[in-house]
Design a protein around this nucleic acid. Structure first.
Length: 361
DNA sequence: TAAGCGTGGAG
DNA sequence: TCTCCAAGCTT
């Protein structure tokens, strides 16, 4: 009884306060039985994994402009997709995005599966994303629990167990709250509430539609939940990157191995990154000069990258495993952020093309 | 099961 | 400057 009360308060709030997002249809349309495009729901959900709405918006607009449907995306070249994803992070998502699009075309005739199990069998789609797509795009009464849902449930029910241990309990609580009617709107209502009212810091309990039913608020501990187990500190790793530019403006680049950090992305040749800079040699003989340091923080370590730059003759051959990308084809926007920072140092050190370059001229 | 995997904004 | 964090998935 309490759960249905919470559920209807949530939907009533969503009908008035739903965020207007490019991958959504409004609550009025949804209540009238319409559904959002599964392709757009899927694409947005993948982009939104561990990523803010603010960061995703422009990427979503660009992707849907270039690839309006799953068939178009499935036919795209890998490098083009990785280049468009550059800067958004967690690049395994982009690799899985393509694999998923191609699987939808080859295994499902270009239509996304309309069940949670069918969706979860696809690359890059896990428990959260499968439930979200099933509920939002197909009207299935699946329980959708993301970080917002965990936080809202922990507060509503005053769950003091720290995450991630509390996860199963929070999922059970969310399951009890999931309605048969408008499950997609319910899921999005929890997310919107978590994003705009029941926020991680300084929750706006004063305007919360669930305040009368919230046990954490009653106990005065809403802002302290959910509790989280402490995270390990980030070590520092160091490495060297080599930026070589030919007299015609072409840069020496590599495509990184498909797995691992920045996997499948364009980058500069250099050393591995370790506590101590590994013994190494430059990718080719040249007058290497120091171009400064780049500092960058990844999920689990800080990186200090020593950048070195050199100008090369126009006819310099590319070493094995590397290639020159001509000035016309090179776009720093195709690089992950770390490599973009290194590029800026290289340009600063080398100056405009032809000024400090091309010792062979 | 726990670690690996990005980035930019907020406080 | 630094820590925390945002619609998680994979191995």
């Amino acid at each position: 009884m309490r759960d249905t009360e919470i559920g209807s308060a949530l939907l009533a709030w969503y009908d008035v306060h739903a965020r207007d997002l490019p991958w959504r249809i409004g609550p009025a349309e949804s209540a009238a039985g319409r559904r959002a495009d599964p392709y757009r729901v899927w694409l947005s959900e993948i982009m939104l994994q561990q990523t803010t709405v603010a960061a995703v918006r422009s990427y979503f607009e660009r992707f849907t402009a270039i690839w309006p449907d799953v068939g178009a995306l499935a036919a795209a070249e890998d490098a083009r997709v990785m280049g468009e994803w550059a800067g958004l992070g967690y690049y395994a998502r982009a690799r899985n995005l393509l694999a998923c699009a191609r699987a939808v075309v080859s295994l499902h005739g270009g239509q996304f599966p309309d069940t949670r199990a069918g969706l979860e069998a696809l690359p890059g789609i896990g428990p959260y994303t499968s439930a979200a797509i099933a509920a939002i795009a197909f009207g299935r009464a699946e329980t959708v629990v993301d970080g917002n849902g965990e936080r809202v449930m922990a507060r509503l029910h005053a769950v003091e167990t720290p995450l991630p241990a509390a996860k199963p309990e929070l999922v059970a609580l969310a399951h009890a709250l999931t309605p048969q009617e408008r499950p997609g709107d319910h899921a999005q209502a929890v997310m919107d509430l978590g994003a705009t009212v029941c926020t991680p810091r300084r929750p706006a309990c004063g305007i919360c539609p669930l305040r009368p039913m919230c046990r954490a608020h009653a106990a005065g501990i809403a802002a302290d939940l959910p509790r989280k187990s402490p995270k390990p500190a980030k070590p520092v790793r160091r490495g060297v990157a080599y930026l070589a530019r030919r007299g015609d403006g072409a840069w020496l680049l590599e495509t990184r191995p498909a797995r691992g950090l920045l996997g499948g992305m364009l980058g500069w040749p250099g050393t591995d990154w370790a506590e101590r800079v590994p013994d190494h040699a430059p990718p080719l003989a040249a007058e290497w000069r120091p171009a400064g340091e780049v500092r960058h923080t990844f999920t689990h370590f800080h990186l200090v990258l020593d950048v070195r730059a050199a100008g090369l003759p126009r006819d310099a051959p590319a070493p094995a495993g590397l290639r020159f990308v001509g000035a016309r084809d090179f776009d720093p926007g195709d690089l992950p952020t770390l490599m973009r920072k290194a590029h800026a140092r290289g340009v600063a050190a080398l100056g405009p093309i032809d000024a400090g370059d091309d010792p062979g001229l």
